[in-house]
């Protein structure tokens, strides 16, 4: 089976790539340069409006909003990478294993998988936060674990498809080991599916971090995080709506970017679409 490359350019893909690229470049740039120290408290610059010196103005601590957004992009990417990393690294092998193992074992693995699905990400993160102390990493591992089932499902159904193709059947009859088949044939062929799911899960992780930081279970102060910036902006919402607008738009850009990227990639990689349209 070859991956169907359906259309060379889809608008979702390019817009998604553009938005995600913006977030990534911002995050990388923040390592080299920010206009101001994002955590430096300066009473004299308190609640300044947008201007040349402070592009988006300052918050109630006199901290530069633009610098915070820049460093916040790092937090957002970190969050996504950890959560998606945990989910993909556990979920994908699990799904492939379930597809290739004896039927009863595969079935059992998927039942356990379904059970994990019953623990919603946010609930798991709140409980993990209570158990291990609330911070970004704990929250993201929880989100990651909660996203394992979707990867396992995708990987399993993809792997089942690959397993029934002629060349895999040929490889099996030639006496190749299961591991070899999994590495040589199955994983490369489901990579596209996993990447699509990663993009979607990334968006979910970003939203979850925002909600958790809002509830106080996420990123610790003063590390800039878009979710915490939103939470801190609340009391000033009526007077200084920009304090909420800036991180709100940032979150929307990241989530929109990863969702569009996922859609675009799906259009390219999803074999079902090839049949359908």
């Amino acid at each position: 089976m070859t991956l169907a490359v359906r259309r060379s350019s889809s608008p979702s893909l390019w817009v998604g790539l553009g938005l995600v690229g913006l977030v990534v470049v911002t995050a990388l740039a923040s390592f080299l340069w920010t206009p101001h120290d994002p955590t430096l408290v300066d009473a004299a610059q308190r609640l300044r409006g947008p201007g040349t010196d402070y592009v988006f103005g300052t918050d109630k601590f006199g901290r530069d909003l633009f610098s915070q957004v820049m460093v916040g992009a790092r937090t957002t990417l970190f969050v996504g990478v950890v959560a998606v990393g945990v989910a993909a690294l556990i979920g994908t092998p699990l799904g492939v294993f379930a597809a290739m193992a004896p039927k009863w074992l595969g079935e059992f693995v998927m039942r356990v998988n379904d059970l994990v699905l019953a623990f919603p990400a946010l609930l798991l993160a709140i409980v993990f936060g209570a158990v291990f102390g609330a911070d970004t990493l704990t929250a993201m591992i929880a989100i990651g674990i909660a996203s394992v089932p979707s990867f396992a499902r995708i990987a399993r159904s993809g792997a089942l498809g690959v397993m029934s193709t002629e060349y895999v059947l040929a490889a099996r009859s030639a006496g190749r080991s299961r591991t070899a088949i999994a590495v040589r044939h199955v994983l490369p062929n489901i990579a596209g599916l996993v990447i699509v799911q990663s993009s979607v899960s990334f968006a979910i992780a970003v939203l979850s971090e925002a909600a958790l930081s809002f509830l106080g279970f996420g990123t610790r102060p003063p590390t800039p995080s878009w979710g915490r910036m939103l939470q801190e902006s609340q009391e000033l919402l009526a007077v200084e709506p920009r304090l909420a607008l800036v991180p709100g738009v940032a979150i929307a850009i990241a989530v929109l970017g990863f969702n569009l990227l996922g859609d675009g990639l799906r259009d390219r990689y999803d074999p079902r679409l090839e049949v359908r349209r």
């Binding site: 925002a210 909600a211 929109l256």
Partner: peptide
């Protein structure tokens, strides 16, 4: 709409 968190 999907990109806007519910609490926002």
């Amino acid at each position: 709409g999907v990109a806007v968190p519910g609490f926002v």
